[in-house]
Structure formats: C-alpha cells, structure tokens
Nucleic acid binder design. Sequence first.
DNA 1: TTTAATAGTTCCAGCATGGAATCTAAAAGA
DNA 2: TCTTTTAGATTCCATGCTGGAACTATTAAA
Lengths: 403, 403
Amino acid sequence: MDGVESDVSSLLSAPSKAVAIEVLVHGAQSRARLARRMGLSPATLTRLVKPLLEGGVLLESDAVRSPGRGRSSLPLDVVPDRYKFVGVKLTEEAIYAVVTDVRSRISDQVRVPLGSLDVSDVVAAVHDIVMDFQSGMDQPLDAVGVTVGGRVDEGEIVADSSFLQWRDVPFRSLLGAALRVPVYLDNDVVGLTKAQQWFGHGKGYSSFALLTVGAGVGYGLVINDLMIPTSLNPLSHYPVDPSGPLCPLGHRGCMTAFLSSSSITAAVSAAHGRFIEYDDVLEMARSGDAPAVRVVQEAARALGRAASAITAFTGVKRIILSGEGIHLAEAARSSVDEGLSEYDTDSALHSELIVRPMDFTEWARGAAVIAIQKTFPRSSPGGTAGSEAVASVAYSTAVIDSE
Amino acid sequence: MDGVESDVSSLLSAPSKAVAIEVLVHGAQSRARLARRMGLSPATLTRLVKPLLEGGVLLESDAVRSPGRGRSSLPLDVVPDRYKFVGVKLTEEAIYAVVTDVRSRISDQVRVPLGSLDVSDVVAAVHDIVMDFQSGMDQPLDAVGVTVGGRVDEGEIVADSSFLQWRDVPFRSLLGAALRVPVYLDNDVVGLTKAQQWFGHGKGYSSFALLTVGAGVGYGLVINDLMIPTSLNPLSHYPVDPSGPLCPLGHRGCMTAFLSSSSITAAVSAAHGRFIEYDDVLEMARSGDAPAVRVVQEAARALGRAASAITAFTGVKRIILSGEGIHLAEAARSSVDEGLSEYDTDSALHSELIVRPMDFTEWARGAAVIAIQKTFPRSSPGGTAGSEAVASVAYSTAVIDSE
DNA sequence: TTTAATAGTTCCAGCATGGAATCTAAAAGA
DNA sequence: TCTTTTAGATTCCATGCTGGAACTATTAAA
C-alpha cells in the first residue's frame, strides 16, 4: 500500500506481468492452475508470483478446497484497490467519465455537458473532472484513458474527429501537460473492444468482433488475441442492400443508412409527418405501428447480414452487438437471424451473436481499459521480425464514423 | 550432403529454425542483417547460425561489398538442394504434381489425368507419381504435401470434398502408409495462401488476403503472420448484388453467381444460344461482343466489391487476386476499380490489389509449401495461454467451395 | 494409520541471451 | 604506404529465465 512500488512496468519482469494479466483477466486462481494455463512449471510460477505479492499487485486468499484429494489451493487475486484509473469518453454533447479499479469496476462516474468544442475548453473540462475525482480519493491515480470517436494517430493525436470538429489535435500531450498522471488516448471503439476483450463478453475468446449501433456504426476486431486496426469508415458505409435507403453521404443501402439512429428516426418520422425519438420508434414497433415495424425489421435484417459478412470475411464466430441503439436487435431478433442466415450455406459455421446494450458509461469504461492495458502492457506476443516497422503501425488507425 | 542430418525439426533449436526460415523467406543475407531484422544480438546470431551451417541447411557465400566502409558481409543462403519436396494438387480431372526445393522452386512437374475418383485409385495414382519422381532423383524426398478443394480436418481427413465426392476420407494416413515419406494434407486455398505468404506476393506483408476465381471462389487470409481459418463456404456465396444472377445453390447475386467460370460461360452462352468456352468469353469481351462485355464487366465489378469488403471487414489492404479465371480482372480492370471504390469513403485506406493469374501448377506448388512449412515449423508465435485448446483449432478448417 | 494425490517451495543445473572485448576486412585519408 | 575509421563476425563471460528433482504441506480415501 505504500508508494514504494511506483511503477509496474519498470519493476516487474515481462513474465510476471503476464501472470498478473492472466489473473486480472481470468480471475482469481491458484499457482498450479496458472502454471497449467500458461504452460509454465510450478517452480517458475512460484518465482514469478513472489514479486507480485511483494509489490502488492496480487494477494493470496484463503485456501480453497477442490474436489478430490490433495492439498487445497491458495487462489491469487489482484488487490482491487492497488490501482485506480480514470476513463473519459468524449462525445459532442458531454464528457462521460468513470473511476475504476484494475478490473475496470466502476467506483465513481460523472457526466458533464460540453459547453464548447474548443480544444482548450475540453482539456480544461477533463482536467477539472480528473481533479475532482482525485480530491475525493485517498490514493493517487495511476493513469487516465481518453477515447474519442474518430481517427486517432499513434495514441497521441486526434487526427480527425468529425463530431468534435477536431483535426490533428495533439490531445494526449495537451492533457498530459495539465495533469500529473500518465494519459493515454485512443479511438472509442478500440477502447470498448478492449474492454470486452479483457473484462467483458470477449473474455476467453481469442477472436471476436464488436459491432456497435448508435449515432453511427462501429466495428472492432480481435483476432488471435490481437486488436486488428480496422479502418472503420469503409465498414460503416458498407453496402448491405443496394435497394435500401440513402445515408447522409449518398450511399444507397449502406450500414449507416439502415442502422444509425438518425436514419431510423428520420424514416419513421417521415412516415408519420412528425419527429419521433429513437426510443419511441422501438416502442411503436413493439406495439405494431406499421412504418416503425418495417424500419426496425429492415435495420435488424441489415444487422444480421453485417454479422454474417463479418464471419464470412474474418472467420470470427463470436460477435458482440452493442451500442446505444442495439435495442432494435432485441426488438426484432427474428429479423436479425433472418439476415444472418440469408446466404448461409454451412450451418456449422454460424456466427454466434451476443446482444448487449451499452450506454455511454460503458464507453467511458472502455477508455479506462485503454489506461489499464497501457499500465499492464503485454510483452509483444506477435514477436514478428522487424520490430521497428511493427511498432509504427501498432495502435494506429482504428476509425469509426461518429457522424 | 550426407545423411547424418536426418531431421531438421529434432536437431535444431527453435531459434535456429527461425533463422533458417528468415533466410528461406527473405533471401540470402548476412548475420548482421539477420540480427537486426530479428532483434537479436550479433553474438546470438553467430551461435544460431553455426548448427545450420554444420547441418548443411545454410551456406556461406562469398563476401559481398556494401557501400561505405567496413568489412564485407558474408551472406548466408539456404542450400537449395538440401531438401526436396513434392506438392500434389488434386482436382476432379487430374492430379497436378511438382518437385520443388526448399524455396519452392519447381524442378519437375507432371499432370496425370484422373480416371477414377475412387479413394484407393487416387492413393495409388499419387503413390506412382511420387515414386516416379523419386526414381529420377539422386536424393531422398523430404516430405510430400497434398491439397484438395474442400474441407480438411486436422490435416488428416478430407472431411468433405464435393468435387472428389469424398466424405471423411483419412487421406493422409492412407497415403502415408503407401509412402515412406512424411505426408501432409491441407485445403488447397490454404496451400496457395501459404505459398504466397512465404514465397509469393504476400512476402514481407504480415497481413494480406488471397482471392481466387476459377471453378469456384476461394479466399485465404493471413493476419499478423498467421493464417486465419476462414470458413469459405459463406464467402463464396456472399451476396454482392441482390439483383444479380442466380448461383447453383439459388443465391441471387452471390460471388459464385458472378464469378465462377461456369456462371460466366453459362450467361454468355445463353445470350448467344451456343456453348462458349471461358477463354473465348474473355476474347469476345475484348473484341466488343456486347453480352460478353456486360458479363465480364459485372463479374469484375463484383470482384472489386468483394475486395473492398475484405478491406472493410478485416483491415487488410493487400489483396492478391488470382486463380485460373482471374484474367477477367485484367480484361476489365476499370470495372474492378469501379466496384472497389463504389462505397469507399476514405481514399487513404484503399485496398491494394495485385492481379496474378495462377495455373494448376501453382496450386501444386502451394501443396509443396504445406510440406515445406511443416518441415520448418514456426515455434508458435502466437504463444497464447491454454496451448491445448489452441492446438486443436490450428490448421483445421479452411474451406472453399470447389463446386 | 497409511497411502495417494495435489499444491507449493527450494535448490540447482542447463541454456539462451547480450554486452564487452577482440579480431577481421575494407575503405578513406594522411 | 600507413593509419584511421567503420562495420561484420567471433569469443568469452555474466546474467537471468527455466524446469526437473527432491522436498514439504495438506487433504481424502483405503
């Protein structure tokens, strides 16, 4: 609990950190189990765990009986309050921020409306939020993660965010100068995907995809435990049905045209001659309003088709459907399945859909996970030759259209 | 050259093998260069190279001058004839077989028409071909790779091959019993993709895709240097244009409906009221025959759309377009580009298309590469926890529809 | 009470690695 | 021509990670 252990990265060996991450992600477990899971000898595990216990990263809980004979195991778990992180998600209307522990469990959260999109104003607002959190805590903050919708380069610069109307803003260094804490920056879908990977519905899957539906369409991809930099603009405007509606960019039947909240509300509003909220559209669909039913069903079918395409093109079966607008998948699940199986030839290779609505707090948690993962970095599992070339690409371009 | 070094796998350490593969794939280079590329010290490289020289795997060539001062480097190269492999590609009409060196350079090849699709007949035919090759060689064969269109399980069993009309045939053990040489089995697109990865147009790219057009549509995907098991049936019947023609399975506007040779010849033949060969269709398109032009252009546009989708869903930019039927992409390149950019919003993230026609000999070379890669296995670069679970999935299902 | 099975530790030999010093080779400059 | 500089390659050694073997600890079953 003392401040001796200032930094994980510098004081722990890479294998020790790998053990910590294993416990972090897969929960409390004994040395023996860790050894088996990680393909290491019990002897090695004893050695790797020692500095983690001394550093206060892990804690040995009481002995636990397992069925059968043999000595009880001593589960190792992370010390929940050993680290504290802040996650910040920027949207055009508000800043959503959370305080989490190392397992990304939220202990505090706040929503601050955004008065101005001016860079310095936003920096100041985030600074104030973090300071506010800090003052209410009895321990120092370990890191802050910030995510935005749009293109983020090298974790440093908001290269292009249409909704914030920012171009080439070195947000990380700006905020880092204002705070005394390490600041990390990334795309919002990347954050949400990584949160799912370590702590959410992607846990235990070496490959999965995340598809979010809300103001825009987001897409995150993890293959072989590695986040794939998927350039998202192309996907959010991917043609699902060339005879479908138009999106703001003029594409007929693209995913945005079918799935974005604005497209859906616009279609139903037009039919009824008055403006109708997104949630009301779903409600109306449920109660049988013909235009609403039609629009929601078509959107759901487009979603199913997109999921089917993801599996076809990436081989990934597990797909998490999420975002503020994903309730439409619950409202019209059969249409989703319809779109999913429309062109399916091999039933054994079905996509496995998980529908999990997520609000903006969840996005902020994703931002916190960016900070957590940077604090507990994986020791380059890819291990490819030509490290310099790889380094320049890593964590670079993951873009979504947050229009 | 003597038979002392019987097996690479058992006598060389994993890092040494990695060095051999580096030289194999990226060509002759000095120890210093290898050290830089692989992130190792010069000292380590000297040590790793020694057993490779002693084992006759690598050879030191004459000193080569580099611009500037300093000692000349001593390039290390593989001894081309140290190993010999046979690659066999089974199609419904014939067996295509090649003899290659460790760089997959073809030194001999043969095409044997297939009289019967009976399993024992095919085993006998392949056996005879391999024996024939053997008798003409002054050194023993190191391994045989066989590829087939269809689903191959665990590298052991042809689970389902529609064109050979085989189901659950343990081809590897059957052929292995007949031959005295290690036999490896895999899907044909996997072989072709791996050949591209190590020795072809995917060399130097950690991620790329291969799309083949011929009797059917094939798709191979490599991400972060790892072959992704893409279940191909879904892709070959992926809907490109819901208003397009029908495929044999009744899908409207799927990739097979647009791109398979039979669909193309059928469409043009119907228009002209007589049967027209595939190559003639391309010829007629070139000379302006309206139906042929139309069909070829639509097929090319579908190809472009498919390529665009690959980039959108996988983030992979480099796409190799190939197969016996890919000449249509050359004949109508502008239509390919049209389909590629139809829904493109971000020009910086364009797909990078490489069009390379490949005949069946090239597919046989792919089979040889299966044998080469099994002989020089990579030491599990993924390195994920839970090795047992990973092992069962690796090299399993990569399917194409070879109908 | 003995035996078997599992968890965890200690000790040590093996081995891969990289740093430092050294040697070799070639070009540039005096 | 000799010296200096630069870079490739080697040798030697300290370091550190690893797993095997032997051991202790704990628990259930015979």
